[in-house]
């Protein structure tokens, strides 16, 4: 959720991509210190938190990872609902994983529209010599869908920090923009409210979920 209670931003981030592209490796690399000397149960986690500071603003990232469940047709809207950002990870040595990224972009754009910040990460650049996803293709695709593209290596700890930092910055910007819009909209609604309460009854009742 994006509430900035107590001056801190809380952002939900989902990691998406095919199995074995290195989502969990990226996540664990990023929050590595959290695991030192901790019991294994720490790892029974749907999401892991990382607190960062950008320009004096405190940001709490809840990073969700359901690695291992890629083959289950179970990661519906419930999973990425209310997420502020998504990192779509593919393996540069695996073309199929890049196709999967395209599918995720399509689905997220359709379901969440512009509300979510998307980043694309080509992981495993330590295996550059085995690359099968052409560099130009990946970058031009990312540019086309308006997502920044990163080359990462969880193994060598390359660009992992940058990836999450960029995402945090973009989510912060989007949040600021939206709250600005929200202010505008609220003031407009107030004017309307004076005349007649707006009712959207076309869909009938609402579900309790």
């Amino acid at each position: 959720m994006t509430t900035s209670a107590g001056g801190a931003y809380n952002f939900k981030v989902v990691l998406l991509g095919e199995g074995c592209v290195g989502k969990t490796s990226l996540l664990l690399r990023y929050i590595e210190d959290k695991f030192n000397d901790k019991h294994l149960t720490t790892l029974q986690a749907t999401f892991l938190n990382k607190k960062i500071n950008i320009n004096g603003k405190r940001i709490n990232l809840s990073i969700w990872d359901t690695a291992g469940q890629e083959k289950f047709h179970a990661l519906g809207p419930i999973y990425y609902r209310n997420s502020n950002g998504a990192i779509l990870v593919y393996d540069i040595t695996d073309e199929d994983s890049f196709v999967k990224v395209k599918n995720w972009v399509k689905e997220l754009k359709k379901m969440l529209g512009p509300d979510i910040v998307l980043l694309i990460a080509g992981n495993k650049i330590d295996l550059e010599h085995e690359r099968t996803v052409p560099l130009e293709e990946a970058e031009s695709y990312a540019a086309m869908v308006g997502a920044k593209h990163f080359y990462t290596s969880a193994k060598l700890n390359q660009c992992v920090e940058d990836l999450f930092l960029e995402l945090a910055k973009e989510m912060m910007e989007k949040f600021e923009q939206n709250s600005q819009k929200e202010v505008n909209r609220t003031s407009r609604v107030l004017v309307v409210d004076d005349e007649a309460p707006a009712q959207s009854s076309c869909c009938g009742g609402t579900r309790s979920n």
Binding site: T24, Q44, G68, Q69
Partner: peptide, 19 residues
């Protein structure tokens, strides 16, 4: 099974040679 798969993926990634 998915819950276990995720847990195991996490453990396997964090501790490749299980302790």
């Amino acid at each position: 099974l998915g819950t276990f798969l995720t847990d195991l993926t996490m453990i396997d990634t964090a501790i490749p040679d299980t302790g």
